[in-house]
Every structure is written in C-alpha cells, then in structure tokens.
C-alpha cells in the first residue's frame, strides 16, 4: 500500500515584517477532500499565510510542502497545482474578461483549442457570459471577484486557495460559489478565508481560527460550535410575559438563564454535559405557558470565534479539539 501523503503540510511557519510578527509558528496539515475555512480577526495573518502558501512571500522560517513539493525550493511546480484568488481579486483592468481568461489559460500551459475549451467551461461555471467583452475595470465589484475566481479554477487545480472569495457577491452568487466549492471533486483541497461564519457551516469540513498569527482553534464546524456556551442550551420564546427566569433557574442541571433580545425570549444554559430539554418542556407543560418557539442550540460559531480570539489576545490557554474528543467533554465550554 502506498503511504498517503498529506497534500499540504505546514511546519513552524513564521513571517515577520520588520518588528511585527504577522505569522508566528503556525503548523497544520490539510488532507485531500478537506475544505478548510481559515478564520480570524482582521490582521490575524490569514492573507499572509496564503501568500506564503502560494509562493508570493517567502517565510521568515518554517516549511510548506504541497503534495510533497517544497514551495520555497520548487515554487513553479507548486504553483502549477494551485489555483489562487488573492485578496481583493486583482486583475488587469484594461483587459476584457475574455482576453484576461485566455491569458491565464495560456500561462497555465494550454494551447490552441484547449485554451478556448478551458475558458468556455469556466465561463459557464461562473456565469460570465454577459460580461465577456467588457473591460474588467468597468465591472461591478462582484463580477470582478467572479473573474478572479474563474481565473483561479481555470486549470482545475488540485489545491484551491481563495482569500475572501464571497466578499461583495450578491446572495445568489454566494450560494453559487458555495455550491461550486462543494462540487469540486473529493480529492481536492480548498482553503478559503472568510469573515462570514455561516459560510463555514455551509461549505467547510474543517475550520481553523487563527489570531495574532497562531492557531487558537481547529476542528470541524460542529465541533467548534460545540465549544460555545450555547451548545445544548435551550432557546424558548413565550407568547405572554410571565416570571419564567426564576422558575427556569430552579430546574435541575440548569446553570444559568439569559434573557433574549426579543421580548419574552430566554436562553437556558445547562450545566456542561447535561441535557435540559426534557425538564424545560415539563416546566412549560406544568405551568401551561404558551410557547411560540423552542429549540436546542447547536452552538454558535460567532460566539466561539469571539471567545477564542479575544481570550488569545489576553494570553489565555489555547483551545484545540481532537477528532476523538467528544464535544461534551470539551473543556472549552464556559
């Protein structure tokens, strides 16, 4: 049997800009079929890491290998495998969409009718028919981004690196780009950076949150959401005002109760690891309160995001999830 090679292996990656350490000691691996969501606050080092992955920046120290190819020593070979959408989707403004895509196809080594075939397929995928003969600088922001995306996938790359691909797209386009990413075949690697957390649930098989250049959380979107204090919490909304807080608090295994933003809505937090849905239900039944809404929260990614990125700024411990660790056992739950 062949030893499976990890497609992307990053070890002790560091990047300094003068005194500023943009990426400090980053190590992770990405395997075939994974869609990795790269999250982190502004200035966390996401783009810088991507620039090093694609061979644009050279790391201050550390190694990156893609498919066993070292990016620093064989950048061209690595770049052939990669499709990259840089932050802001730069492209040559005075070219038309068609000539730009043809140029990229030619750089990617296609000749003659292959160029047209590649360009055509990508035009269909990203729906660029309407703007083919328009100069890129006259396109709307979303279309510019789509051209950048088309350029990145024109050679059907094994590794796709997208820096904020859905920034500026309309909801239809966002949906379409997500579908596109999901439909990429299973042996590919996709790394996307984004600030839209719902996107992570929608497309990513794994999320990596970095803050100040270090990893602060790593796991599947569900695992990460489970680190939220909202995990297993019960949200409910009553139709009339009543004194629910104290009654809810009195239930067994209830840790605390928060009043929601909407009137008469509450979030009931369990003692970590306990389930309280039954008890809450029973209470509602006993008191005969009218319920408009009741559900168990899976956990909120934005909550976890805040939790890990703010705490890392204060130098607290690092949260890391192992595949085998059950969400309930996670120490991250507050």
């Amino acid at each position: 049997m062949e030893v499976p090679i990890t497609m992307i292996k990053i070890t002790n990656l560091k990047k300094r800009f003068g005194d500023l350490c943009a990426v400090s000691d980053l190590s992770f691996q990405v395997n075939p079929g994974e869609v990795l969501g790269f999250l982190g606050p502004n200035g966390a080092g996401k783009s810088t890491t991507m620039k090093m992955l694609t061979g644009f920046l050279s790391p201050s120290s550390g190694d990156i290998s893609i498919f066993g190819i070292n990016v620093a020593s064989k950048p061209l070979e690595a770049q052939r495998l990669i499709g990259y959408l840089p932050e802001g989707a730069p492209s040559y403004g005075d070219m038309t969409v068609l000539s730009f895509l043809k140029f990229i196809a030619a750089v990617r080594g296609y000749r003659g009718s292959d160029v047209d075939a590649r360009v055509e397929s990508v035009i269909n995928k990203i729906q660029l028919e309407k703007v083919l003969y328009q100069r890129i600088e006259t396109l709307s922001k979303g279309f510019k981004r789509r051209v950048g995306l088309a350029q990145a996938i024109i050679h059907d790359p094994k590794v796709l690196i997208l820096d904020e691909p859905t920034d500026g797209l309309d909801p239809n386009q966002k949906h379409q780009v997500r579908e596109l990413i999901k439909n990429l075949s299973k042996d590919k690697i996709v790394i996307i950076s984004t600030h839209i957390l719902e996107e992570v649930h929608a497309v990513c098989t794994r999320a990596l949150i970095i803050s100040s250049g270090t990893i602060v959380a790593d796991g599947s979107p569900d695992q990460l959401s489970a680190m939220s204090k909202y995990h297993q919490a019960v949200s409910l909304k009553l139709s009339q005002p009543c004194d629910a807080v104290s009654a809810l608090k009195a239930l067994a295994d209830v840790d605390s109760v928060a009043v929601g933003e909407e009137p008469n809505s509450y979030v009931v937090f369990p003692v970590p690891g306990k389930s309280i849905l039954k008890a809450v239900n029973q209470l509602l039944h006993d008191r005969d309160w009218q319920v408009e809404e009741l559900h168990v929260e899976k956990g909120r990614l934005d909550d976890v995001f805040r939790q890990v990125t703010l705490s890392s700024a204060h130098g607290q411990s690092q949260y890391k999830l192992d595949q085998s660790v059950k969400a309930e056992e996670s120490e991250g739950v507050v």
């Binding site: 644009f56 061209l76 770049q79 052939r80 840089p86 730069p90």
Partner: peptide, 14 residues
C-alpha cells in the same frame, strides 16, 4: 499599485 503583481507572481512563471 493595483496588486496584480500578486497574481502574476503566483502563476507558474519564473
């Protein structure tokens, strides 16, 4: 200025 250098330098070109 326009950032296309990042595109150009990450294409498989020396």
């Amino acid at each position: 200025r326009s950032g296309t250098i990042e595109l150009l330098m990450t294409l498989p070109l020396t």
